[in-house]
Design a protein around this nucleic acid. Structure first.
Length: 153
DNA sequence: GCCAACGTTGGC
DNA sequence: GCCAACGTTGGC
């Protein structure tokens, strides 16, 4: 079992949007970065847990916990010529992009980026490294436990 | 296979 | 809205 952090722009899909979806589940489509794709395709398993992180917004930070609810499968948006995530190089036989589905476990308080940076225990988190842009990153089990401890205070 | 140009991300 | 950092593209 692995732990992850997944970024979402709240303008696209916020934690409250997710909470209102049927079955509180959403397909994580639109990932167009090979590293992030490979994490989903090669490493994510149903039952893995992830922090849901609001990015590119007024108050970036962790806002909830989600569960990976299925194995990776082809991203439907890559086949739709009218979609902004259309991928002309993909065919049904050789899809380039995949996604998993995630299901809300619970909302948390906002644990914002500034606070995350204050804990020495988290200084090696991928999300906190200079120049980090990857929208899906692994989280070390110790970091996962530490953050859960902070959220439980 | 190099690398300049370009596009995107995301905090501020 | 700015801009540093990074990923991708494509000519050579």
């Amino acid at each position: 079992m692995r732990y992850w952090l997944m970024k979402s722009e709240p303008g696209d899909c916020s934690i409250d949007d997710l909470a209102g979806f049927p079955n509180q589940t959403v397909d994580w489509y639109g990932i167009r970065n090979y590293q992030a794709r490979n994490f989903m395709r090669d490493q994510m398993q149903p039952g893995d847990l992830a922090f849901f992180y609001h990015s590119n917004c007024k108050e970036p930070g962790i806002v909830g916990i989600v569960e990976i609810s299925c194995h990776a499968y082809p991203d439907r948006t890559q086949f739709d010529p009218k979609h902004k995530y259309f991928e002309p190089k993909s065919t049904l036989e050789t899809p380039r992009w995949v996604n998993v589905d995630v299901k809300l476990v619970r909302k948390t308080r906002l644990l914002n980026l500034k606070e995350l940076r204050e804990y020495p225990e988290l200084e090696h988190m991928r999300i906190l490294q200079r120049g980090n842009r990857l929208s899906i990153t692994p989280v070390d089990p110790r970091e996962w436990a530490f953050i859960n401890g902070v959220l439980a205070e």
